[in-house]
Design a protein around this nucleic acid. Structure first.
Lengths: 113, 113
DNA sequence: CCGATATACAACCGACTGGTTGATAAACCG
DNA sequence: CGGTTTATCAACCAGTCGGTTGTATATCGG
């Protein structure tokens, strides 16, 4: 899938990439440093960074022979916003307890839609 | 990857599955109804539901010949919590402007690690 | 210019994904 | 009982994913 939200969630669906983002939350870093914690080739890291870049989660500049990566927050906003939107519907507009009651009643007479 | 967070983000990385969750935010629904909006076989929907179930995002009960699906919020909390954690580090503890300054200084003397 | 370092590109591999079709099980209805 | 509806299981297929190795390219530092 190539829609924006799917790219973002797909990029987040990997522990290595999440760790990279966690590191980038502390500030810019070049590729080699990002890869240092992982038992993995530099090319593998490069691929992960490409996935993150395609999702818009990072941007890369050039600084001599280094290509420092920087975290971009906007896609995280989108992802978080999507989740919160439906969590809100679930938790607020109905309420957890009330929802539970509705569920049990629905189980009994199954007439709520 | 089979860690919990990767399963959740992976499950969210598909528009069909996100639409199913959106529908389930309005209440329980059986498989056939969940699949109705999509131009897709019932088996494909069944597979999507299995992905969602494996991620803990839905649970399924039995009600005669129907298997109603129900949204589970806990994994969404985890996912949202992960995102917010790092967004917070980025936006609050440093601030966007201050971060920008750090970034530019780092570009000049490159001595911050 | 030369060698080392940093990074990217391409091809390959096994595993998984998202869909298909065909067959199957279970529960309702007449 | 037999037929319909609901849903799953199993096999298959093309495409993508996460990693590898090998090969380039570019920049720094003598």
């Amino acid at each position: 899938m190539d829609d924006a939200l799917s790219l973002v969630f797909g990029a987040l669906a990997d522990p290595t990439r999440r760790a990279i983002l966690a590191r980038l939350a502390e500030g810019e870093a070049p590729v080699t440093e990002l890869g240092r914690p992982f038992d993995m080739s530099a090319q593998a890291i490069s691929k992960h960074l490409k996935v993150l870049e395609r999702a818009g989660l990072i941007s890369r500049s050039r600084q001599g022979q280094w290509r420092p990566c920087r975290l971009e927050v906007a896609p995280l906003d989108h992802a978080s916003g999507w989740i919160e939107q439906y969590r809100a519907v679930w938790e607020d507009s109905l309420g957890r307890l009330e929802q539970e009651i509705v569920r049990i009643q629905g189980r009994q007479d199954h007439a709520h839609d």
